[in-house]
């Protein structure tokens, strides 16, 4: 699996050889990840072709692709997928607009900028489940601060079938806009100053400068931020799970959780897990492609 080594092999004559050290350093981690990630996934791949139920001792039967075809024909699961996509679109767009907007505003000399930025970054470091919980307090229809502050009367944010998804998305936007802001700021500060100076000498309009200089140079980093948030949004579980039980707002992770651990349909749940896994792997591949591209710069 591994061959040649570095030329600084004078040390190889003393102590352990470089090959030994490299193997000692790299193999344990790879083995650890194979045992605790790859192996369990292969285990559940097996279950996805059976009618196994973890809650019963009934004999397990091989059912072939039936679980997969059943899932793709199930209207409830289909609706969960559509809801998830809509949630991803709303929440990532919101994070992009708020985060990039904030970065543009912050990209100027401001007294106490470092402190201000750190304060703004606080939400994304907090535990999603606890964030979901205290937003529940804020969203409360009768005594929540949000309805009172905005004068919305008794709007039932989390129990209204039409609003619940947006309420969760707003919380997610609050939490993760700072992430987009952080990456955008890095991109903006990397734009060479002389380009702006040249543009101002040419009397280029602000709009022109923005679309021709700023945006193209920030785009690669923005793309990374957006793909990463898209991937995370597809996986959303904690926030939505604690905030609302509305079936209309059920994301695919919550559906999967219910199938696996409330209804104990282990076989079909494993199949659904694999569909979600393929989807996430697709986005991961695209993400890493752009991540490595950004690294080379």
């Amino acid at each position: 699996m591994m061959t040649t080594l570095s030329p600084s092999s004078r040390a190889a004559t003393r102590g352990w050889s470089d090959i030994t050290i490299r193997n000692l350093f790299v193999i344990p981690t790879v083995a650890f990840l194979i045992i605790f990630n790859v192996f369990p996934l292969l285990y559940s791949l097996g279950f996805s072709f059976t009618d196994f139920r973890a809650s019963s001792k009934a004999p397990v039967n091989f059912v072939g692709l039936k679980n997969y075809t059943d899932i793709l024909a199930d209207p409830v699961i289909w609706r969960s997928f559509s809801t998830t996509l809509w949630y991803v679109i709303v929440s990532v767009t919101g994070q992009f607009v708020v985060g990039f907007g904030l970065a543009l505003l912050l990209n100027r000399p401001i007294p106490g900028k470092g402190f201000l930025t750190t304060l703004l970054l606080l939400p994304m470091m907090l535990s999603p489940v606890v964030v979901g919980l205290f937003w529940k307090l804020i969203y409360d229809p009768s005594w929540g601060i949000l309805n009172y502050a905005l004068g919305l009367g008794k709007t039932a944010w989390l129990t209204d079938a039409n609003l619940a998804l947006y309420a969760v998305a707003i919380t997610d936007i609050w939490m993760w806009s700072p992430f987009v802001m952080l990456l955008s700021l890095a991109g903006l500060s990397a734009v060479p100053k002389h380009l702006y100076e040249a543009a101002s000498i040419d009397r280029a309009s602000k709009l022109y400068t923005f679309f021709r200089i700023t945006l193209p140079l920030v785009a690669p980093i923005l793309l990374i931020a957006v793909i990463f948030r898209t991937m995370e949004a597809f996986k959303t579980f904690d926030i939505a799970f604690v905030m609302t039980g509305q079936p209309q707002a059920e994301l695919i992770s919550s559906r999967l959780y219910k199938m696996a651990f409330a209804q104990w349909q282990t076989g079909p749940a494993s199949a659904l897990a694999y569909i979600v896994l393929i989807m996430v792997l697709c986005i991961t591949n695209i993400y890493v492609k752009y991540l490595n591209k950004a690294k080379e710069r």
Partner: peptide
């Protein structure tokens, strides 16, 4: 293809595309 597959899986309208999205 990967992006199209994700969109096919999650779009709420055409069941044929949903069924073959994976």
């Amino acid at each position: 293809l990967m992006v199209a597959g994700i969109l096919f899986l999650c779009q709420p309208w055409i069941s044929f595309l949903h069924a073959w999205s994976v």
